[in-house]
């Protein structure tokens, strides 16, 4: 069994309204050094298989459901458990 971590975030140049709202709130709480906040989604998926085949499967998951390639980019990390 391996654990796949898929991190989905906005591509460069795509506005991230949630990140902007969080940045504003942090600045209002006097965290004045905060210059930029981006929000990503982390999916942790436990799955049977070896690392290489699982990575391919995770890419397919991104293509079919987890990612809209117009606005998102993703990163896949595989961990043995």
């Amino acid at each position: 069994m391996v654990k796949v971590k898929i991190i989905v975030s906005y591509k460069e140049g795509v506005e991230d309204p949630e990140g902007l709202a969080i940045k504003k709130s942090l600045n209002l709480l006097n965290f004045n050094n905060v210059k930029n906040v981006t929000v990503s989604k982390l999916y942790e998926i436990n799955i049977e298989g070896d690392s290489s085949s699982v990575k391919k499967e995770a890419e397919e998951m991104c293509d079919k459901l987890l990612v809209n390639p117009v606005i998102h980019k993703y990163k896949i990390e595989v961990e043995k458990i």
Partner: peptide, 27 residues
């Protein structure tokens, strides 16, 4: 949009979405 039937640019059905309906700018 997610299915790829809209906007349907140069195709009637694209395998991947060609556009996105992203979160409102006002959040």
């Amino acid at each position: 949009i997610e299915l790829g039937f809209l906007p349907g640019i140069n195709t009637d059905w694209s395998e991947k979405p060609q556009a996105a309906l992203a979160p409102n700018i006002s959040n």
